[in-house]
């Protein structure tokens, strides 16, 4: 085998993983566009999605084919407003509450915010995780969810998820990201 001083120091996946977490900490301003399929029981919705985050502020827009049946969520850690496509608005403390009331979806928006960036949800324990050789998540189990990271794409100096399937016993969220960027 090659002497140790010639072997390229292949950092273990775990070290790369730690570095990724630190790097992701700095990413407080981000945005992505993509498509999602939300399934609850035997009902499914296909929607385009646009998500922008700036520190505490977030803007999430879901819209059906041909811009039909849009839903917008705007807010911060204190208050969130949901606007339906007929102009009706509702306000609550959390996005989860609003989506449950308005759409009947039990969507863990706060957890999604971390998962879509390829990092664990900060408020829940990690039940299981698997990494690829670059220290990126390929599988994550948290808060009753199983999250598969099926593809990554470059964004500035980051490597961001571009295909994520999230599964919970009674809800499934599939996401394909077509574009990562900075909020306007």
């Amino acid at each position: 085998c090659t002497p140790f001083w010639q072997q390229k120091p292949t950092q273990s996946a775990d070290i790369l993983w730690q570095q990724r977490l630190v790097q992701q900490e700095e990413l407080t301003h981000w945005a992505f566009k993509g498509r999602t399929a939300i399934t609850q029981g035997q009902e499914g919705w296909n929607a385009g999605i646009k998500w922008e985050e700036q520190h505490e502020q977030f803007h999430i827009k879901l819209f059906g084919p041909f811009s039909q049946g849009g839903v917008a969520l705007d807010g911060d850690q204190q208050e969130v407003t949901l606007t339906l496509d007929d102009g009706e608005t509702m306000t609550a403390a959390t996005p989860e509450q609003l989506l449950a009331e308005a759409m009947g979806w039990l969507l863990p928006v706060s957890a999604l915010r971390d998962w879509v960036r390829g990092v664990p949800y900060s408020q829940a324990a990690i039940e299981n995780k698997q990494l690829d050789e670059q220290g990126r998540l390929t599988l994550l189990k948290q808060a009753g969810w199983t999250i598969e990271f099926l593809r990554y794409m470059p964004f500035e100096t980051y490597s961001m998820p571009s295909k994520v399937f999230m599964k919970h016993p009674d809800l499934s969220v599939r996401l394909v990201v077509t574009d990562w960027s900075r909020p306007k």
Binding site: R35, T36, A37, G44, N46, K163, R174, V176
Partner: peptide, 12 residues
């Protein structure tokens, strides 16, 4: 029927 190939799902 909505079929998104990359999302690997059909919604009807």
């Amino acid at each position: 029927w909505f079929y998104d190939v990359d999302l690997e799902q059909v919604t009807v």
